[in-house]
Simulated scan of single mutants.
Amino acid sequence: MIRTVFRSDDLPPGERLARFEDFLDGTSHPMRVTTADPARFRATVRVLDLGPVSVVHLTCSPAVVWRTERLIRRADPELCSVLFPHRGALRVAQAHREAALTGRDFALCDSSRPFRVLVSGPGTPALIQARAPRALLPAPVRRTDHLLGRRLPGREGLGALLTQFLTDVTAAPAPYSGSDVSRLSSVALDLLATVLAHHADDDGAARDGAARARGGVARAQDGPRELLPRIEAFIAEHLADPELSPGTVAAAHHISVRYLHRLFQLRDTTVTELIRRLRLERARRDLADPRLRDLPVHRVAARWGFAEHSAFTRAFRTAYGVPPRDYRRRAGRVPADSSGGPPCLPVPPVPLGG
């Protein structure tokens, strides 16, 4: 059930803004706030916890909320979030872009980058925000810098499915059961990933079209020194795709598979071995991350492109000497490091051969 975590009406008028500032400063990703009329400021924050996903409904007087580099250095849970107006209007600025939002149009925010949100409108405006750890999103949609600070349509298509879902779950008066929360969390993550992938694909197609018009698509004439880093970056960004293979990598860079294998001889490895090694390492990190302890092992495997759970288990045991479930159990008994990241376990290097 949605919880009220801050309500200014419970406080004397002269303390409301300062207490709201304290509230924002004490969150997992601290923020600042300012308003043109501090004496009349009001705010109510309600939060619906859906496992690793949280949905926030904020009602407040017109104000500006922002996050700076200094606040990011102090605390950053690496959250990806979408936000849209429930009443009034928003103006969201991030990554040197600014989006004016009305209705159900939404914007994407990254807690690891400075941002500014202007809440405005007649009466008391309200917004809805859904936040999820970036690590839970499929690898291809984690790099979303090109979407930050842009207005994304939320009144039709996939965007409407997302904004309507978030509006409905925050409005439901009845409490959710434990199984309801688990299912709603999966729905929220899947919807968010689907919407971001849709816009990333559209944007990528537009960029590719512009590059083709300039004659600048994947340059097979580039030498190995220029081509190899681009290919390795491409592989790292597409590990979650179970269809990733030497053939798809070569096609994406407009080179032959034979030439691709020749390039990787310079790295003393093969394309297939690199894909397997990177996937196993990403899965190992997820299994050791206490924030992902409720994510089933088979979902961890699928997130990194392993289509068959049994094949993942065999490869993981070969690489690290223990099955993935046992590794996760051991990780749960090791304290997190001082940086707040996943536990640090001694891990043998992943063999490249075989």
Rank of each mutant, 00 (worst) to 15 (best):
M1Y: 15
F6V: 00
L11K: 00
P12H: 09
R16H: 07
F20T: 02
D25G: 13
T27Y: 07
T27A: 00
A39C: 04
R42D: 12
T44F: 01
V45Q: 01
V47H: 01
L48I: 01
D49F: 09
V55H: 03
V55C: 05
S61M: 00
S61Y: 00
A63F: 06
L71P: 06
D76R: 05
E78Q: 10
L83Y: 10
R87M: 12
R87L: 14
A89K: 09
R97Y: 14
D105G: 08
F106I: 10
A107S: 14
L108W: 09
S111E: 11
L127K: 06
Q129C: 14
Q129H: 09
A135R: 13
P138W: 00
L148M: 08
L148E: 02
G149D: 09
G149P: 06
G154D: 09
G157W: 04
G159W: 06
A160F: 15
L161Y: 13
L162I: 02
T163Q: 03
T167R: 11
V195Q: 02
D201F: 13
R207K: 15
D208V: 14
G209Y: 15
V217N: 13
A218K: 10
G223R: 05
G223E: 08
P224M: 01
E226N: 10
L228R: 09
H238A: 09
A240H: 05
P246S: 07
G247R: 14
T248M: 06
A250M: 03
A250S: 04
A252D: 00
S256D: 05
R258Q: 12
F264L: 11
R267Y: 00
T269C: 08
H298T: 15
A302T: 11
R303F: 08
R303W: 06
G305H: 03
F306C: 04
A307D: 11
V322Y: 07
Y327G: 03
P335S: 02
A336R: 15
G340C: 06
C344A: 14
L345Y: 01
L345K: 03
P346R: 09
P351V: 02
